[in-house]
Design a protein around this nucleic acid. Structure first.
Lengths: 224, 224
DNA sequence: ACCTGAACACCGTTCAAGT
DNA sequence: ACCTGAACACCGTTCAAGT
């Protein structure tokens, strides 16, 4: 029955790969395990990704980082829902009617959520080039918004880079700190008075992100 | 001659591992290759890192991210120079005599340089917890500086997180963009007018980092 | 204590073959 | 076109053994 034509597709492969990454970690994503999860021989994946695992990784990054609307404006049904909860609204509030700063906030929130949702794949982002169509759409959204804010030329590029840096860095910071939960309390002795004093200060991750976002955006807009 | 006691040490192993990472990439750092580079059987490394490759990775991250002075203040000879160029000055300008904002700038510059110098190991940073002694020293430096700037309580922790996020994110942004150099020019057609217009705008990476750093620091200090 | 060498259970990928 | 299955050249790690 499962002899031939198992209905494999790049989409199905990527989705299944992400399920493995999210559930077991990136290191346990092997071609053989991926084949098993797809009820297929491992080597079947190579027919859809001839360049092998590296090409699969690139496709995963492109899939994850796609957070901008690809069509005209809004009012469209999501034909390719990204996953489990249909309650969440992707691509919301990035169309031209929305004020520029709110558009950037919505992009930043969507991008953070996308990275957090598959934080096990975060490490794939670093070594891969940001030249996917989705990345270009994000760039266009950034440039249009900062242009509307009054920035021009190099300042626009600069602002976009800083915003992207903050969001990416904040997610990494959040993920690294979350890993601290089950660990030993670290050695905070007299040499670190400030750390000792503020050790029990806990911030809500969402609020922390929002505050940092506000600080970043206001600093960038002030140059206009 | 190379039968026994080959003079292995954790320091030598880490240094050699970084040489392989910097020269050939993280993927080519294997225990056997590392053993070869150390003129030793691969399994000898396990005597110094009993928990295997994961423990080695942690040590590498701790080694790389150590950018703060560990001793009292300054005026000390570097007994463990981090590598090639003795012209560079590690740990400069982070002592208490220096104004708080300049201390933070110097930390940010040193941290960026440390990450850039071994950008092939950047991916190791993400999944590992920031609870090394060096990381705690950086945190103490942050907290002390922002306290001096007038921030208190949660605002101090928040500011430190944002600063760390910016620097980490900026390095990742820089590394990803640098990978764009030899690639195809990407598809920038009529759908991306702003990207098209600003496509040839090139910023000096150092200047770009400095400007983003100023924007971030000024936004954080303004809350005082 | 420090290192060797064989062995085991995996990997990614190539290739010829099936349908 | 799409998938199989055997094979190859690697991996990380365990373990008993050497000195």
């Amino acid at each position: 029955m499962s002899r031939n034509n198992a209905g494999l597709s790049t989409e199905r492969i990527i989705t299944e790969a992400l399920r493995i990454i999210d559930g077991q970690g990136l290191r346990r994503l092997t071609m053989r395990r991926l084949g098993d999860a797809l009820n297929v021989e491992a080597m079947a994946v190579y027919h859809h990704f001839p360049l092998g695992k590296e090409q699969l990784f690139e496709a995963i990054v492109a899939y994850i980082t796609d957070v901008t609307p690809s069509a005209a404006s809004s009012e469209e049904e999501a034909d390719t829902d990204q996953g489990e909860s249909p309650a969440a609204d992707p691509y919301r509030g990035m169309s031209a009617e929305v004020p520029w700063d709110e558009r950037l906030r919505n992009w930043a929130r969507a991008y953070r959520q996308a990275l957090l949702r598959h934080s096990g794949a975060l490490t794939l982002l670093i070594n891969r080039r940001p030249d996917t169509p989705a990345a270009t759409r994000s760039l266009e959204l950034h440039y249009a918004a900062f242009h509307e804010a009054g920035l021009r030329g190099a300042a626009v590029v600069q602002a976009s880079a800083v915003l992207d840096s903050y969001v990416t860095g904040a997610v990494i910071h959040e993920v690294r700190e979350a890993g601290l939960a089950g660990a030993a309390p670290a050695v905070v002795d007299g040499r670190f008075p400030h750390v000792h004093r503020l050790d029990n200060v806990a911030l809500d991750p969402d609020q922390r992100f929002e505050e940092g976002l506000e600080a970043t955006l206001s600093a960038l807009a002030r140059d206009a």
